[in-house]
């Protein structure tokens, strides 16, 4: 078992902190009236995305590759949904792409194990 403690770069720490703040802000949005108005299943879908992002940030905090994988998967799913409901947020898109770039830069230093 690989037990080496990997040092977390400042950039990834910053990404995680911003991510956790975003999660705290997004959790109440799951059951906000505006999301509910989009359709019966949108709160569930949005809730799944928030949970996936939360898990990915915990993975990244521990410098795990699966954190990056989950984040990228959640990012694509989120963008598909936003395109479907015609509510694409360009600042949000740019920030997510920046986060992915940061993860890619340190990807090789991340742990492959769970």
């Amino acid at each position: 078992m690989e037990t080496a403690i990997r040092k977390r770069p400042v950039l990834i720490t910053t990404v995680c902190i911003i991510g956790f703040i975003w999660i705290v802000g997004s959790l109440p949005a799951v059951f906000s009236p505006s999301i509910k108005k989009l359709g019966d299943w949108y709160p569930a879908l949005f809730g799944f995305l928030v949970a996936a992002c939360f898990i990915s940030y915990i993975g990244l905090w521990h410098m795990k590759r699966w954190g990056a994988h989950v984040f990228i998967g959640a990012f694509f799913l989120k963008e598909i949904i936003l395109i479907m409901i015609d509510d694409v947020s360009y600042p949000g898109f740019v920030i997510s792409v920046f986060f992915i770039a940061c993860m890619t830069a340190y990807y090789k230093k991340m742990d492959v194990n769970l």
Binding site: I23, L27, V30, F31, K36, D40, W41, P43, A44, G47, F48, V50, A51, F54, I55, I58
Partner: peptide, 20 residues
């Protein structure tokens, strides 16, 4: 039905977030 789905969604979400 939408409110029942919402109730279950919130419960599961809180379960995942607080238990992870």
């Amino acid at each position: 039905k939408s409110n029942i789905i919402l109730g279950f969604t919130i419960s599961i979400l809180i379960g995942v977030v607080s238990g992870f």
